Amino acid sequence: MSELRDLRLFIAAATHGGFRGAARVTGVPVSTISEAVRRIEDRLGVRLLHRTTRSVALTEAGRALLERIVPALEGVESALESAAGFGRGPRGTLRLNVPGAVTRKILPPILTGFLKAYPDISVDLTVNDSLVDVLSEGADAGIRYGETLAQDVIAVPIGPRVQRGATAASADYIARHGAPQHPRELLSHACIRTRFPGGALTEWEFERDGEVLSVDPSGPLTVSTQAAEIAIATAVSGLGIVASFEAWLRPALDDGRLLPVLESWWPTFEGPFLYYSSRHHMPLPLRAFVDFVKAWPRS
Results as ranks from 00 to 15, higher is better:
residue 6 D to V: 01
residue 7 L to F: 04
residue 8 R to H: 00
residue 16 H to Y: 15
residue 21 G to Q: 07
residue 23 A to R: 04
residue 24 R to A: 12
residue 25 V to R: 00
residue 29 P to D: 15
residue 29 P to V: 11
residue 33 I to M: 10
residue 45 G to F: 06
residue 46 V to D: 00
residue 51 R to A: 13
residue 54 R to L: 15
residue 56 V to R: 00
residue 59 T to G: 06
residue 68 R to Y: 03
residue 68 R to D: 14
residue 76 V to I: 00
residue 80 L to F: 09
residue 87 G to E: 02
residue 88 R to L: 06
residue 100 G to M: 05
residue 101 A to T: 10
residue 103 T to N: 07
residue 109 P to V: 11
residue 118 Y to D: 02
residue 120 D to Y: 07
residue 121 I to C: 04
residue 124 D to C: 04
residue 125 L to Q: 08
residue 129 D to V: 09
residue 130 S to F: 11
residue 132 V to T: 12
residue 132 V to D: 00
residue 139 A to V: 04
residue 141 A to K: 09
residue 141 A to T: 07
residue 150 A to L: 14
residue 157 P to T: 05
residue 160 P to A: 05
residue 162 V to L: 14
residue 164 R to N: 01
residue 165 G to W: 09
residue 169 A to S: 08
residue 170 S to D: 03
residue 174 I to A: 00
residue 194 T to K: 06
residue 194 T to R: 15
residue 209 D to Y: 01
residue 214 S to F: 03
residue 215 V to N: 13
residue 220 P to C: 07
residue 222 T to Y: 01
residue 229 E to F: 10
residue 242 V to E: 10
residue 252 A to S: 15
residue 256 G to F: 09
residue 257 R to A: 11
residue 258 L to M: 09
residue 262 L to M: 07
residue 266 W to G: 07
residue 266 W to Q: 00
residue 269 F to M: 01
residue 271 G to P: 11
residue 271 G to S: 10
residue 272 P to M: 08
residue 275 Y to Q: 08
residue 278 S to Y: 01
residue 280 H to I: 02
residue 284 L to Q: 12
residue 285 P to Y: 06
residue 287 R to E: 06
residue 297 P to E: 10
residue 297 P to T: 10
